[in-house]
Structure formats: structure tokens, C-alpha cells
């Protein structure tokens, strides 16, 4: 992979050039003492040293609400698929969020490729940046998602006076050539990058107490663990943990119709397995009626089900759920570690 250098004083020019291109540029901005992704009007709004954005950049690929079909009722039913996709450059995405997008890519392609997701995806450029100041709830280092070699067009690392830029795609290379002032990276700068990454890895406060690959097997043996009941007793079933999660992609589908009862649209919107009626069917049967079964389902989906289906873990360790949960029970690391401890005592 080729590496270039952008001097810090030249970064604003790169960002502003992108903003003035045909794409919408999205990056982390300060918001009430926290950070949130949003459209940039000027390079000065962009934060590249943020710890964690409140919400993942997922909404640029899978919006919270998205029209799938527009229809018009009448003699002849007219229904047309709606596919909306704009050029978006996500600027400054952390590796764990990139790993999460890699999972979404797999989930929305495959045997039943999703035209809405894939059309958006094709128009999204990802400029990543290594996270050097992890959030106190994050545990990416122990999941192997604190850094990434794949899934980006460009990847930046802050090495003090400049950024090392790894080029991940021809598209990334083109953007650099067209819009940025760069020079070749020296060997010592690449060494500095490794050092920065190593230093960051040491800063994580939360860690999974086992290797991520061992999770499916641990969960295989943990179905009847009392942990699920103990923790879920405090659950408010608010769904915050799934709404802030970069890897959650479940959705509901509904119709909306105009007051004239003619034009309308079918849309999907985010849904979550922690919400009470997620598995409810007509007749009143609810296949995960109590918070314990929902809580367990979420943990299993994170640590086992998606792994088995897509070869990728359903959690990238960003820590957003832990920050969002008022009951302080949502962090998968905490539950997984407790299960591991139970196992240790049992064996």
C-alpha cells in the first residue's frame, strides 16, 4: 500500500477542495461538548482528533428512514422503486466504524443484493483516520478493530507535524492527486505512524478478556447463564443501544399515504431487537416477550450469529452502546467477560 504525507498546514486546503467538489463532505464536528458527523461547510468545522462520534456514519448508507417505493393508487396501480444516492465523502472515519461498514457491505450484498444500500455505497468515499484518543468505553483494541488495512479509500494517521496517508483505492489516489498537496513518506515517518498506533492501543481502558474468535464457542455454552437475567432486569427496552450501534441494521417497513389517499410511499426505518414488539405477530404471540430473551438475543447476534453468517463479528467495540445506556448494562464486553469468568469458575 502506498503512503504519502500531507503536512498539517495543508490539510484545510485538501478538505476545502473536497467541499468545493461535486461531493458532500461529512466529518466529525463539535456538538455540545461531544462530536457528531455532519455536513461540512468549511474545513475549520472538522475535528480529526475526536474520540467517538455520538452516532456512527451508518446513516449515510442506511438512513434512519428511507423511501423504497413510491406509489400512486388509481385504476392502474403505479409503483416505482426509489433509489436515492448522492456523492458523499466521509472524512475522518475511525477504523472501528470502517469495520462496521464492512459488515454492512456483506449483509446488504450476497444472494439478495439491496439496491438502495449498494447504490449509496457506490457513491461513498471513505477517508479514515486512526483513533489516537480512544473513548473510555471503547474496547476496539481487544477486537482487532482499532486499526484496519481494508475498507477505506484513504487512511490518515496523525504523526504530529503531518498526517501519513495510506492509499487504499485508485479513487483515493485520484482524490489526493487532484485536491491535496502531498509528498512521499519517509521511512522514519512510517515508523512514527506505527508508534502512534501502538501508543493508542495501550490507551484502551476496556478489553475483552479473550480472543474475539473464541466468542461463538463461549456463547454456545452460555445460553442458560444467569447474567442475562441479572443484567436485563434493569433494561428499559428503550432501544438506544441498537440505535447508536454501527453494526445494527435491522429495519421495519411501513407505508405512508398522502391525505388525498392517492400518492404514497413505502419506507424502511431502523428497528431494533431490544424493542418490545420486534418479534410480535398478530394473535399476540411474541417470540421474545421478556427483556431477558431480547437482551440475550442482542448479545448472541453481536458475538455469534453474525459471525457464523457473515464471518464478521456483530460488534466492533466502539463503546457507543455503553455510553447511551441509562441502565449501564449494554456493553457487550462486560457481558462477554462475565460469561468468560463464569466459564472459568465452572471448568
Amino acid at each position: 500500500m502506498e503512503n504519502r504525507i500531507i503536512e498539517k498546514q495543508n490539510m484545510d486546503v485538501f478538505v476545502n477542495n473536497l467541499i468545493n467538489s461535486d461531493a458532500e463532505v461529512v466529518g466529525a464536528k463539535r456538538k455540545d461538548g461531544k462530536y457528531a458527523f455532519g455536513k461540512l461547510a468549511d474545513a475549520t468545522e472538522l475535528c480529526l482528533d475526536y474520540d467517538l462520534a455520538l452516532y456512527p456514519p451508518k446513516s449515510y448508507l442506511l438512513p434512519p428512514k428511507e423511501t423504497l417505493i413510491k406509489f400512486e393508487l388509481g385504476e392502474e396501480l403505479e409503483a416505482e422503486p426509489v433509489v436515492e444516492a448522492e456523492r458523499v465523502i466521509l472524512f475522518g472515519v475511525h477504523p472501528y466504524d470502517i469495520k462496521a461498514i464492512e459488515l454492512l457491505d456483506v449483509a446488504f450484498s450476497g444472494t439478495n443484493p439491496d439496491i438502495n444500500y449498494l447504490s449509496r455505497r457506490a457513491k461513498v468515499t471513505i477517508i479514515g483516520i486512526d483513533c489516537l484518543n480512544p473513548n473510555p468505553n471503547a474496547f476496539c483494541a481487544s477486537l482487532g478493530t482499532a486499526t484496519t488495512d481494508t475498507g477505506f479509500d484513504l487512511m490518515l494517521t496523525d504523526i504530529g507535524a503531518s498526517y501519513v496517508v495510506a492509499i487504499g483505492s485508485s479513487e483515493g489516489e485520484e482524490l489526493l492527486g487532484k485536491y491535496a498537496v502531498t509528498r512521499e513518506a519517509t521511512q522514519s515517518e512510517l515508523v512514527q505512524r506505527d508508534e502512534q498506533r501502538q501508543k493508542a492501543l495501550a490507551k484502551y481502558k476496556v478489553a475483552l478478556s479473550m480472543s474475539a474468535e473464541d466468542l461463538p464457542e463461549l456463547l454456545d455454552k452460555s445460553w442458560d447463564s444467569p447474567v442475562f437475567k441479572e443484567k436485563s432486569e434493569k433494561c428499559l427496552s428503550c432501544g438506544s443501544c441498537v440505535m447508536v450501534c454501527p453494526t445494527c441494521f435491522c429495519f421495519d417497513v411501513q407505508d405512508d399515504i398522502a391525505l388525498n389517499l392517492k400518492q404514497g410511499e413505502r419506507y424502511r426505518q431502523w428497528d431494533g431487537c431490544m424493542l418490545v414488539d420486534f418479534a410480535l405477530v398478530a394473535g399476540g404471540e411474541n417470540f421474545r416477550r421478556d427483556s431477558e430473551t431480547r437482551f440475550r438475543h442482542r448479545m448472541y447476534r453481536k458475538g455469534k450469529y453474525l459471525w457464523e453468517r457473515y464471518g464478521k463479528l456483530g460488534c466492533v467495540g466502539c463503546g457507543r452502546c455503553a455510553s447511551a445506556c441509562l441502565a449501564e448494562i449494554a456493553s457487550p464486553a462486560e457481558t462477554f467477560n462475565t460469561l468468560k469468568e463464569e466459564r472459568r469458575q465452572h471448568d
Partner: peptide, 19 residues
């Protein structure tokens, strides 16, 4: 088996029983 279903194509997650 009956489950809640929304998409029918393995995306929406509603019909999941375990994995």
C-alpha cells in the same frame, strides 16, 4: 414456523430464531 417478517429476503432481522 411462523415469525414476524418484514423483508422476506434475509435483511430486516425480524424473523430470526437464534442465528
Amino acid at each position: 414456523l411462523e415469525r414476524r417478517m418484514k423483508c422476506g429476503v434475509g435483511k430486516c432481522g425480524h424473523c430470526q430464531i437464534n442465528g
